[in-house]
Amino acid sequence: MSALVREHYNFAYLDEHTKRMIRRALLKGVAIPGYQVPFASREMPMPYGWGTGGVQVSAACMVPEDRVKVIDQGADDTTNAISIRKFFERTAGVTVTERTKEATLIQTRHRIPEQPLSEDQILVYQVPIPEPLRFLEPRETETRKMHALSEYGLMHVKLYEDISQHGEIATSYAYPAEVNGRHVFDPSPIPKFDNPKLDNSPALQLFGAGREQRIYAVPPYTRVRSLDFEDYPFVAARAEHRCALCGSTHTYLDEVIIDDEGGRMFVCSDTDYCNEQQRANAEAERDAG
């Protein structure tokens, strides 16, 4: 840890009182899976929408031994991912990594890693709008009551509208799901392809919404069921292509435009996973050769 860090900042930027406040909210969230716990979100040295909720949750969970990975849209090398990684490197002096397998604390925006997580890992999501019912019910007093009484019919009205307008459930990200048979929650804007990974995960999953001042959690090995209709069951959709770099057919792909002639290719959105697949392919080729 550099001297600069010790002199100017508390470990991981937040003061200990704030961390304690956030940890209390996290404990409550773990105790009531999917329930949105209000917390006193702090001003962070970055704008709202850049992951202030996730950063606060990560900071409150972080220990000096952590190996931290930050994902933005699946990638480790985008501006947002790099700046948050640097933030923790400088304020907490922790080791950072791009390898999912090596990480103990992963903060993510828009994706769940392809690599299955383990019990030793914490996945922290950055959440823009935590309230899944907001789409149809603008009153916070009313949505809280609806959660309290498990009145979730409105969620299905949203899905009904999807089918009636598009012939299928067109919601493709932030797909609502029911946690532990009780609360319906918004899993942040991850693609619905990732929804099945929420279910029964060995890792602790924490969600932080900085602007909206809400924290919620899915404890390890908790049932997470994506909402659907009997005759329109949930489908974890992905582009029907093969990754142009690693060739995998089971991962979530990004469409990338590669030239001015409209040429495009599909590549894994999870850069770490793609790199690993490519390495494995190369080794297999060498062995075969």
């Binding site: 009145e151 019919g153 409105l154 009205v157 009904y160 509208e161 009997e230 005759d231 329109y232």
Partner: peptide, 25 residues
């Protein structure tokens, strides 16, 4: 609900009491 289709408006109460079959609704 003015932002929801006529069908969704009629179906809401059914979904609120647990109807989960799109075709039936």
């Amino acid at each position: 609900r003015l932002s929801v289709s006529a069908g969704g408006n009629v179906g809401e109460r059914l979904m609120a009491v647990g109807a989960r079959h799109y075709g039936d609704i």
